[in-house]
């Protein structure tokens, strides 16, 4: 369970990015966090991960996100960054995948089993010993997701998981996300992907939630989307 209670945040004084934000996400939900550029989507992710300090309270499984609880909280949350190059900092895919389990004191034997299982599940076994800088963008994105899955987090946060991917790799990532059983929070401008992968959508505008409801309902509301500098998903606009 993830809960924001009256959260406020500003990078600069007098220019709030997040304003009195409150919402609750239950375990197992798939939530799309959408909004125009600068709406505060990535900031919400960073606040949840304790990367930025804020006013108000953020709870993960009833534990408040504070300096003291960060280690426990971060153990539960896996974050897939928008730029996979920044996520994959070890020389090879294998070393990157084993990084988190070993940091969380999982034995090397168990960690290696996890790595192999995740790679097999995602069909990435041949990437195991490849150098991160030598794999393609699509492979890197999948490998970045694999590094997070090897952590076995309770919730997965994804920042623009399909950006800069070709249609094939985009579809591979979408299918992978759909198969994940964990709680998912996904920020994206790719509304078709959100429609495909999320049950619920939070529409963020100027740091506030302006709509919260089933994905199929909100993403069909043309007037709502357009009033917040967004458009209907392409798959829906073609039909209508």
């Amino acid at each position: 369970m993830i809960e924001f209670q009256h959260v406020n945040f500003a990078y600069e004084k007098d220019r709030p990015v997040i304003r009195d934000l409150s919402f609750r996400i239950e375990s197992g939900e798939s939530v799309g966090l959408i909004g125009a550029n600068g709406a505060g989507k990535s900031t919400v992710m960073k606040l949840l991960l304790g990367l930025l300090p804020c006013e108000g309270q953020i709870l993960v499984d009833d534990t408040p996100v504070t300096k003291e609880t960060l280690k426990t909280i971060r153990r539960k949350l896996g974050f897939v960054l928008q730029n996979s190059d920044n996520q994959m900092f070890m020389p090879t895919v294998y070393e990157d995948m084993i990084f988190a389990p070993l940091n969380y004191m999982v034995s090397r034997e168990e960690a290696e089993k996890r790595v192999d299982a995740v790679l097999a599940r995602l069909g990435l076994t041949e990437l195991k010993y490849r150098h991160n800088h030598k794999i393609s963008g699509g492979e890197k994105r999948m490998a970045a997701i694999a590094t997070i899955l090897a952590m076995e987090p309770e919730a997965i946060l994804m920042d623009e998981p399909t950006s800069a991917l070709d249609p094939y790799n985009r579809r591979v990532v979408i299918n992978t996300i759909r198969e994940l059983s964990q709680t998912k929070i996904i920020t994206s401008h790719d509304l078709d992907m959100i429609l495909d992968t999320c049950d619920r959508v939070l529409l963020l505008s100027e740091g506030q939630i302006v709509a919260d409801g089933p994905a199929g309902e909100i993403l069909r509301d043309q007037a709502l989307l357009e009033s917040h500098r967004m458009e209907l998903p392409l798959s829906l606009s073609r039909r209508e």
Partner: peptide, 13 residues
């Protein structure tokens, strides 16, 4: 990204 995957000045990995 390192911090979020449990890095804290220890090199368990």
């Amino acid at each position: 990204s390192m911090l979020l995957r449990g890095y804290h000045d220890h090199f368990h990995y």
